[in-house]
Nucleic acid binder design. Structure first.
Length: 426
RNA sequence: GGAGAGCUGGCCGAGUGGUCGAAGGCACCUGACUCGAAAUCAGGCGUACCGGCAACGGUACCGUAGGUUCGAAUCCUACGCUCUCCGCCA
């Protein structure tokens, strides 16, 4: 959520900066609501002040003058009705006001390039070289199906499209990658969390998935409303909701493995083959809570932490700074990591690292006390994939494939694969 | 799933329908004492919004949402959460 004060004070500037994101920006009658809301507050508060003063008299009259009490009671009943009516009006305005605020995306940071599509994203740096093959490189799903390591057909039978069974060594590889990634991050100072996979509407609202993107989420059918998490960012960012953190201990850094569930409502027909776009996938997520002045440096370090996984796996990749048009709802600045897929002949997003500034912190009241005795301030929150596990596995299959369809494994994974250095068919 | 107890400030905890933004304690801040620290003493110390240059004043907030009342932390209803016991279960 944007700072409502700043929006009210710099309305035109805010509209202008948000419009660089493209898309349709709906302020509704927000400007009028601001004025209406504050007028209602002023008149309500003066009525309340009047009532409080009158009640003081009641207190005295109750003891000294029972006759006057009855008379006063009549007047106050009217005043009370008036106040209740005012409160109803205010509640209605407040609801519309909040509804608009909750659908406004975060302001892009000034360092973010202005653009109109992903074509305006900026490649910041590239690591490694694409592997050369003396044969035509296959796509990951061709390798997986030929080797009996991936079974999309049976998954479709059991669950529908965009689901998969992993088999044998590949199932193990998925598990191995999770452990490997978490070990890299805990080694580098992150605290491991294993979060809940179902969360409340409130939690989804704090991180920004709701109220605007409800179509993308899976909701449970039980008596209690819950949402399947689309990323561990949701439970982990909410971990410190409604808390005042000790400023001395910031930044806090967490890594968390979880499955992720996405309806992919707007992606019908896209990436229909293979593991790239599933309703369910695994991800190791990084989340940081920082002071405002620390967050931009923390973002750079988070990108380095995520790319470290790619470096250790020897995967050619690049770092891309997203332009304003490609920024996520809650983000003020985002770097995507894109890994090279020789089979597909393209770079594919494998991680997205965002600085959300105080946008989520304001929604979730995530604060810190800079020093003992000082006032609490909003934290900045950051999140990034470290990494998307399924897509990492795709990259390994495509980058380490051999002509006969077998796949070599990077040495760093051997300890997690029982010493295995290649995938066996199953 | 059944029965009971509870939910108050950063934390612990008192609170009779008006004298309660709320005792007391801890933590924290400032000062005194001290070479310094500890201990002790004095004062301060919630959040948000509105008005004001400021001092300060006003309003709201005692799990959440309603209700009763001139007036609710206090009474009523629903919901959420925590704890204890029973049942079930990995």
């Amino acid at each position: 959520m944007l700072d409502p004060k700043k929006v009210a004070q710099n309305f035109d500037a805010v509209v202008e900066r948000l419009s660089t994101r493209g898309g349709n920006l709906d302020f509704g009658d927000f400007r009028a609501l601001i004025a209406e809301r504050s007028a209602l507050y002023v008149s309500l508060e003066s009525l309340q002040a009047k009532r409080n003063a009158a009640n003081e008299e009641m207190k005295r009259a109750a003891k000294q003058d029972p006759a006057a009490l009855e008379r006063l009671r009549g007047d106050l009943r009217t005043l009370s009705q008036e106040i209740k009516e005012k409160e109803r009006q205010l509640a209605a305005v407040e609801e519309r006001y909040q509804a608009v605020l909750l659908t406004l995306p975060n302001l892009p940071d000034p360092s973010v390039p202005v653009g109109t599509s992903e074509a305006d994203n900026v490649v910041v740096r590239t690591w490694g070289e694409p592997p050369r093959f003396p044969f035509t490189a296959k796509q990951h799903f061709e390798i997986g199906e030929q080797q009996g390591l991936l079974d999309f057909e049976r998954a479709a039978k059991v669950s529908g499209s965009r689901f998969v069974f992993y088999r044998g060594d590949l199932a193990r590889l998925e598990r191995a990658l999770v452990s490997f990634m978490i070990d890299v991050h805990t080694e580098r100072g992150y605290t491991e969390l294993l979060p809940p996979y179902l969360v409340s509407r409130a939690a989804m609202t704090v991180t920004g998935q709701l109220p605007k993107f409800e179509d993308d989420a899976f909701e449970t059918a039980g008596p209690d409303e819950r949402f399947l998490i689309p990323t561990a960012e949701v439970p982990v960012t909410n971990y410190h909701a409604d808390e005042i953190l000790d400023g001395e201990r910031l930044p806090l850094r967490y890594c968390a493995f979880s499955p992720c569930f996405r309806a992919e409502a707007g992606a019908a027909g896209r990436d229909t083959r293979g593991l790239i776009r599933m309703h369910q996938f695994h991800k190791v997520e990084l989340v940081k809570f920082t002071k405002p002045e620390q967050s931009m440096e923390a973002l750079e370090r988070m990108v380095d932490d995520a790319t470290e996984v790619l470096r250790r796996l020897g995967l050619h990749h690049r770092v891309v700074l997203l332009c304003t048009a490609d920024l996520g709802f809650a983000s003020m600045k985002t770097y995507d990591l894109e890994v090279w897929l020789p089979g597909a002949g393209t770079f594919r997003e494998i991680s997205s690292c965002s600085n959300c500034g105080d946008f989520q912190a304001r929604r979730g009241m995530i604060r810190f006390r800079p020093a003992p005795g000082e006032k609490p301030q909003l934290c900045h929150t950051l999140n990034g994939s470290g990494l998307a596990v399924g897509r990492t596995l795709v990259a390994l299959l495509e980058n380490y494939q051999r002509e006969d369809g077998t796949v070599r494994l990077p040495d760093v994974l051997a300890p997690y694969m029982g010493g295995r250095t290649e995938l066996r068919s199953a």
